[in-house]
């Protein structure tokens, strides 16, 4: 009898505690400084974006936000730190898509579970990648570029600045049935330097570096995104060819560890939506040459997961072109 009473009390206590937790704790977050992890070095694109939007978040949430750079292994280390942080809502962060999907797909040693370890809340940017070539070359349009490759498979040196660019290259190879030979550079800046110095024949790089390319006599031969390039309207959109490349647009996505209470995610999404309505946010992001694109909540989460499967399909087909050590 005694046992039953104790059990009942315990059960009641459990039910009560479960019921009461959200209603008591929900308004109590946040009460102290939030750590915002950027898995790249200070001064990089993700860092610049974070330093632009974090102050607006801080103002809305009423607490300070401390940006912490944890660079290394193409963002893998910092992302892991976010996933492994205490799920109390006081450690959040950002990561770049499609890098995170690609890491999870091609790096077998990477422990992060893309679907289980993180919540994807919002992004303010989606900067597409384009193809560039010298204006005076024999392959100064996409058509000629494809024709040249049909006649000379792998005949041009195609410079690219990262694994995301290689996935786009593989997508183009798949679409036209051609073979492109790539040279990998550490950063987009290195690609531009090699291009202007005549060390490579064509390049894949973000839309944001167009001015540098143009200054060296290069021009886009195919353009990423949904709007044509203003100065080079002749460059076809990948989208117009039926090539869907949105999944390769660089998005800097706000993250929380998987097990944070639902009210933390809800509040962050609410704040993110509010911040997206501030006009200066867009102006400031465009000043650093990002393409402004806001999405949040369920849409964001769905995008991340849809893109994962698209990248996985293309990666499996072109593993040797994407993962260079195979």
């Amino acid at each position: 009898m005694m046992k039953k009473i104790v059990l009942c009390i315990l059960f009641l206590a459990l039910v009560l505690s479960l019921c009461s937790t959200p209603s008591i704790a929900a308004p109590a977050w946040p009460t102290k400084t939030i750590t915002w992890i950027v898995p790249f070095s200070a001064g990089g694109n993700a860092d610049n974006i974070s330093r632009i939007i974090a102050p607006y978040f801080s103002k809305e949430l009423g607490v300070a936000i401390n940006i912490v750079n944890q660079p290394g292994a193409a963002g893998e280390i910092g992302t892991m730190a976010i996933a492994e942080a205490d799920p109390d809502g006081y450690t959040i962060g950002v990561i770049n898509a499609p890098d995170i999907q690609i890491s999870c797909i091609v790096n077998d040693a990477y422990d992060l579970d893309f679907f289980k370890d993180l919540n994807y809340l919002a992004t303010y940017t989606a900067t597409p990648i384009s193809f560039y070539a010298p204006q005076k070359s024999e392959w100064n349009t996409l058509e000629k570029f494809v024709k040249y490759h049909k006649e000379h498979p792998g005949g041009l040196l195609f410079g690219e600045g990262g694994i995301g660019h290689r996935v786009l290259m593989a997508t183009v190879m798949d679409y036209f049935g051609i073979q492109i030979s790539s040279v990998n550079f550490n950063s987009v800046a290195d690609v531009v330097a090699a291009a202007l110095g005549g060390h490579i024949d064509a390049a894949g790089a973000g839309n944001q570096v167009i001015s540098q390319f143009v200054s060296g006599g290069w021009a886009p031969i195919a353009w990423g995104g949904t709007e044509k390039c203003k100065d080079f309207p002749d460059a076809p959109l990948f989208a117009d060819m039926g090539l869907f490349t949105d999944f390769l647009n660089v998005m800097t996505v706000l993250l929380t560890p998987k097990d944070v209470p639902a009210y933390v995610n809800e509040r962050l999404i609410e704040v993110a939506n509010k911040v997206s309505r501030i006009p200066e946010v867009r102006t400031q992001l465009e000043a650093i040459n990002c393409v402004y694109y806001f999405t949040s909540g369920a849409d964001m989460d769905k995008k991340m997961k849809d893109y994962y499967s698209q990248i996985q399909t293309i990666s499996e087909k072109y593993k040797s072109a994407i993962v260079l050590n195979n």
Binding site: G43, N48, V192, L196, Q284, A287
Partner: peptide, 22 residues
């Protein structure tokens, strides 16, 4: 050329861009 030669110069380049200059 808009090409940063070293990490610090890359950050200065970021600063230029944040102030609206490419």
């Amino acid at each position: 050329l808009g090409i940063p030669c070293s990490p610090t110069i890359a950050i200065l380049m970021g600063a230029f861009m944040m102030h609206g200059m490419i």
